[in-house]
């Protein structure tokens, strides 16, 4: 599902990265670890089409993401990629339900209220859909942001430090939910983290090394 080749990125002459080739099949998970400053978030943004690589290829399904223009990448991201962040952020003025409707709206997909509700039930946040995001607990917020990443049935789910702000209990349940949801939706799941607790959970692992600075 996900395949990268000779991926390189440079912020400027002094700060550039070259990444090892990665691959992740549909329904599988890949853990990318490394110390801070080694380019984890940069890699994730490259995979999401938020940053454009200096050279190399990113292929997601049959789409060569690295060849898409800025707005083309925006569109592809909206349709096919779900993102989960370290800290759950929402549109504060919209209810949780409306926040979950947003990906479908921006991704040009039909909004199915019933599907969102059943997804929310699965993730145990069915009872908070009418509330504002601020009124949720941290655990609920993180589950809501997983729901948001899943709404469009993405082919690739990218998670940036999804557990590092959580305690052990929440960490376990969140990573469990993520891997299970990815498997159920037959999506590839890529997690970048420095959270050592995850190393025992995800089998496929790549460690980035501090380089090229």
């Amino acid at each position: 599902m996900l395949q990268t080749k000779n991926l390189q990125f440079a912020y400027n002459r002094a700060l550039s990265f070259s990444f090892p080739d990665l691959g992740c099949n549909a329904g599988e998970s890949l853990l990318i670890t490394g110390r801070s400053g080694c380019g984890k978030t940069t890699l994730l943004h490259l995979l999401a089409g938020i940053l454009h690589p200096a050279s190399g290829e990113i292929k997601i399904g049959n789409t060569l993401l690295s060849s898409l223009s800025g707005s083309g990448a925006d569109r592809f991201r909206g349709e096919s990629i779900g993102l989960v962040y370290q800290r759950p952020h929402f549109i504060a003025s919209l209810t949780v339900m409306d926040n979950l409707r947003l990906p479908a709206y921006f991704g040009h997909k039909p909004v199915v209220g019933a599907a969102i509700e059943s997804l929310a039930e699965q993730l145990g946040i069915g009872h908070v859909l009418r509330q504002l995001p601020d009124q949720l607990s941290v655990g609920e917020q993180q589950r809501a942001s997983i729901a948001r990443a899943m709404v469009n049935n993405p082919r690739l789910i990218l998670a940036d430090e999804p557990t590092s702000a959580l305690d052990d209990d929440n960490c376990t349940s969140v990573i469990e939910l993520l891997t299970r949801q990815a498997a159920e939706h037959n999506a590839a799941l890529v997690i970048v983290t420095h959270d050592g607790r995850l190393k025992s959970v995800v089998k496929n692992q790549v460690e980035l090394s501090l380089q090229g600075r």
Binding site: D74, P103, F106
Partner: peptide, 11 residues
């Protein structure tokens, strides 16, 4: 919030 919308595919 705006970055979030962009990341969800808003041009």
């Amino acid at each position: 919030e705006l970055a979030l919308m962009r990341s969800m595919g808003c041009s």
